Amino acid sequence: MSFLKSTGDIIGFLLLSLFAIVEGIIKLFTPLKYRMKSVAGEVALVTGGGSGLGRLISLRLANLGAVVVVWDINKSGIDETVKLVQASGGVCFGYVCDLCDREDVYQKAALLRKEVGKVTILINNAGIVTGKKFLDTPDQMIIRTMDVNIMSHFWTVKAFLPGMMEDDKGHIVSIASLAGYTGIPKLVDYCASKFAAVGFDEALRMELEAEGYSIQTTVICPYFIRSTGMFEDVQSRFVPTLKSNEVADRVITAMRCNEKYAIVPGYLQGMLALKWMFPWTCAAMFLRGLVLDASPNHGVPSPSIPETEVTSIPSKDQNGSALHHQIARRVSSSERKP
């Protein structure tokens, strides 16, 4: 019986795989406008929406008829985004939220549900980069990078996923990076956080599918983006850095088409495959030749600072503004399941 069951499972797997491949080919040749779902009337939360890529995504969602909610630590940036969305005829709400503080995330999530409604589209966009060699990066900055770039995903998803599961409806978008697939000098903490974001998205999707939910997840992995305040000075060869408007358009398209992942530009997907096909020496030489220096302005080691004296550290963030807030803080040991 065990042999027959295993044989049946293999045959079923092959048939379902064939069906999935045919379905993928059909979608590939289906015009884009017929593949995109409507987001009109959906409540969409964009973290780090106070400027840069987050603001561009917010404007596009509002133009498509979504009710947009912006979270950021920058109050003036939030106000500017809300004004721009409203000026374009959209609906937008803004809340100051410290994504490094899970209790603040849970409190603002409860307030959002009360004042706006259930979030059905969650876009985890907020991100920062320090751009220093690993041993030159203060501990607090490493903690900050992980808190903003990945730990905040845990807190926002825990806050809003239960509501999505109640209605078996929702979409979670993680803005990761190609640095979530390849290591780059001076970006050790950043790469680690983006590798984690890619893994978070895939594992969460697998878990939701295994439990029979129709909630969608998408991870976006772009190359270096210009005009976001993070990689303005990156020294890249052969592959041009990306325009933020192009990336914002790709985020919306990927989400509306229920794509599982989107690598930007798309042709780099093939290069990632080659990374595992060739010896590591070849892959490392290629990556070093492609990205000469990811953060030229941070190449000089900074003097060590006693941890007791570090209370606030500015870092370049994904949305083009400097985030300044308390880092040396105590994290509550209590667990909470919203």
Rank of each mutant, 00 (worst) to 15 (best):
Y106F: 11
M206F: 04
A273S: 05
L208A: 14
H324D: 03
Y34V: 00
P162V: 08
N258D: 09
Q107V: 12
F195A: 04
I142E: 12
E246G: 06
L242F: 01
S214L: 12
G229L: 10
L187S: 06
A44E: 02
A262P: 05
G12M: 14
R102F: 12
T7D: 10
Q86S: 02
D201Y: 05
F19T: 01
S6V: 06
Y181I: 09
V68F: 08
C257F: 08
G117C: 12
L111S: 03
I21Q: 06
I313Y: 09
V219Y: 15
S295G: 00
L56N: 02
V70Y: 07
P301H: 13
D293I: 02
M271Y: 02
E115R: 13
I252Q: 01
P31N: 10
C191F: 13
D79V: 13
S174E: 11
R102D: 11
C92L: 06
S227M: 14
L53T: 11
C100L: 09
V148P: 00
P314V: 09
H171C: 09
G48S: 09
L84W: 08
R60K: 02
D136H: 11
V300G: 09
S333T: 07
L323E: 02
D104E: 11
D233Y: 13
A273T: 15
G131F: 01
T253K: 14
S295V: 05
F160T: 00
L64W: 04
I313F: 03
N297C: 01
V198Q: 11
A284Y: 04
T228R: 08
D139G: 11
L178F: 13
S315T: 04
G212M: 00
M230L: 13
I73W: 03
A262E: 15
P162I: 07
R256E: 08
N149K: 05
V70N: 08
A109I: 10
F224Q: 07
E207Y: 03
S174Q: 15
V291N: 07
V251A: 07
T156W: 03
S302I: 14
P314Y: 08
